[in-house]
């Protein structure tokens, strides 16, 4: 028996938004530690890793590990039937071929349940090596979304360059060049509005704008986002999900041919 009840159901709705543009289907791996999902996009350029800890749920029960293959388009349709205020419970029997989503209104006067067929997915998990990144940049998530949107107009690729002074995002294309420089915040009233840079060595890498824009679908999950970079390895874009977990996106760089 698997059962996970989330008081703040809107978080699951937001998680869905953060996944569905990149992934058509994915396996939700459930254990007593919580729910994890790891999947590559169709082109195998990026990897999404979601972690929702058991402690973050109001009620969590997982008698035996199970992997639920879900069509994210279908799951998204179902989650659209939940109100933002609803409490959401995900339920499945052991070895079941369906999963049930239960939505309760806050005052319990409306309860809906939706059963969805599970899929058999050929799972391919990748081992992500522990990396000490040369640069980590924390910035407001809305700012990052704005930068990705603005620079996408100029070209397919964006260069992210980080030095001690700040971080520069650049894109070049037929109409010209765009450069956005963000300095490390000197003094901030609110932690989540800060730009904070930790740097061991300067790094400059090129990434496809298309994927970065897809990652920013997670913006509503967190006020800030963390970018981690090292020379010639994938970028990590991490959004924390309140007290329950995180979604991380890994994006392979573009390298000089």
């Amino acid at each position: 028996m698997f059962e996970a009840r989330l008081l703040q159901g809107s978080l699951l709705k937001k998680v869905m938004e953060a996944l569905k543009e990149l992934l058509n289907e994915a396996a939700w791996d459930c254990s007593d530690a919580g729910i994890q999902l790891q999947a590559m996009d169709n082109s195998h350029v990026s990897l999404v890793s979601l972690n929702l800890r058991a402690e973050g749920f109001d009620k969590y029960r997982c008698d035996r590990n199970l992997s639920m293959g879900m069509n994210l388009g279908s799951m998204s349709k179902i989650l659209k039937c939940a109100s933002n205020e609803d409490i959401i419970t995900i339920k499945a029997q052991d070895n079941a071929d369906t999963v049930t989503f239960v939505f309760e209104s806050p005052d319990q006067d409306k309860v809906s349940d939706y059963e969805m067929k599970l899929m058999n997915l050929d799972q391919e998990h990748l081992g992500i090596p522990e990396t000490d990144y040369a640069c980590t940049i924390r910035l407001p998530s809305s700012e990052f979304a704005r930068i990705c949107r603005d620079l996408s107009q100029f070209g397919e690729s964006m260069v992210i360059s980080c030095t001690k002074e700040g971080v520069r995002f650049s894109a070049t294309g037929d109409i010209g060049t765009g450069n956005i420089k963000l300095a490390q915040s000197a003094k901030v009233d609110k932690e989540e509005e800060a730009v904070v840079i930790e740097m061991q060595e300067p790094v400059s890498l090129t990434f496809a704008c298309r994927y970065l824009n897809s990652f920013t679908k997670a913006t509503s999950l967190s006020k800030s986002v963390q970018l981690s970079m090292s020379p010639e390895v994938p970028l990590v874009v991490e959004y924390k999900i309140e007290d329950i977990g995180h979604v991380r996106y890994y994006l392979a760089p573009k390298i000089e041919d």
């Binding site: 195998h44 990897l47 391919e124 990748l126 081992g127 992500i128 994938p234 994006l251 392979a252």
Partner: peptide, 14 residues
């Protein structure tokens, strides 16, 4: 000219 790398060239299959 830059070439898009695949994520599988950095992370190994388990």
């Amino acid at each position: 000219k830059t070439k898009q790398k695949s994520i599988t060239s950095f992370f190994t299959r388990k």
